[in-house]
Amino acid sequence: MWAPIAAADEIVARLSYHWAPKHHSAIYSQEFADRVNARGEGKIRIETFPSGQLFGIREIMGALTSGSVQLGGVVGTVSFPPVNRNYNVEALPGVFEDFGHLRKFFRETEVGQEVWNDVLNRTRTKFLAYNPTGPFMTFTSQRPLTSTESYEGLKARYLSGVERPRWTALGADAVSMPTGEVYTALQNGMIDTFATVPSAIKAYSWWDHVKYAELPHQFYADSFIMANQAWFDGLPEDVQQLLIEVGEEISEESTASIMEFSDKVLEEFVAMGGQVNTLSEEAQAEFERINREEVFPGLSEMIDPEVLDAALEFSSQ
């Protein structure tokens, strides 16, 4: 697929991601490219294409697999389930405590490893860095979200199919919609609610149209910087090592800063007149009941029962 690379030639690679420049994941995607370019000057140069200039959130995985682009920013809950549906366990509400807990499941349990390795093998991609999107929470323009009843009749956008059973269980009308259409849909009233990470409401200016947010976080959306495996294998060994080393640095720094970054965005949201409501213990218990009795069973066609059981058992330990 890839032509041989002469040792004396500078390698030029394209890094495509859908995040807007102010998004936390976009900031660290650019930082990844900047560090590689500085340390690999004369050997490799990465050109970045943010805001879906090359490929959108639902297109990047296919582009990496086909070799249409060398590097990409990938959101796990969007790109991985079409390859292996069991990756949907990431988005189970209330199951994983944080990013470390989530990653431990995929890297250290037999079931999780099988899912993770299957995704990489089938897509012919190379993992380079963790670049988390953030903690998911719900935002709406309609009313404070303080109970399960608050969701009745809301028009909720969903990005991945795993979100839909929860909206249905809570009595909201679910509408499938890519990232690029959300602002206009909020503007014209097609939707009034969505679950996303705090970084997104700032990066895409969605906070122009929403007034209320709900805590605690539902799940932790991990994202990655990935490479086409054939392209990576064809690189000189020192360039491969450079990408791996910078990837490790970005993984640590992006993960360490994501929660603080998210909290600061919420502070800005409140300063603009927004309202963040934390559920009472009684309300949280009701959400947990609905998850157990309606949401998790509704995911039976999206997650194999043994994988769902393994994730719930892992969470309870």
Rank of each mutant, 00 (worst) to 15 (best):
L102I: 09
V111K: 14
F105D: 04
T77W: 07
T125L: 11
G112A: 11
N117H: 11
E110M: 12
E110P: 09
F127R: 10
P82K: 02
T77I: 10
T77R: 07
V78Q: 10
F105H: 04
A129W: 05
V89H: 00
Y87C: 05
N88R: 06
F106T: 04
F99G: 02
V89Y: 03
N84E: 14
E108D: 14
P93D: 03
N84L: 10
V111Q: 14
R85L: 11
R85N: 13
V78P: 09
L128I: 13
R122W: 03
N117L: 11
A129C: 11
T125H: 06
N117C: 05
P132L: 01
N131K: 03
L120N: 00
P132K: 00
R107F: 13
A91I: 09
E114A: 14
P81E: 02
T123L: 08
N84W: 08
V115K: 01
K126L: 11
S79E: 15
N84M: 12
F80I: 06
E90D: 13
D98W: 01
V83H: 03
E110A: 14
G94K: 00
E90C: 06
N84K: 10
Y130Q: 12
S79T: 13
N84G: 08
N117D: 15
K126Y: 13
F99E: 03
N84Q: 11
F96L: 01
N117V: 02
R107P: 06
H101F: 07
R124E: 12
V119R: 02
W116R: 12
D98I: 03
R122K: 09
V89I: 15
V115G: 00
E114M: 11
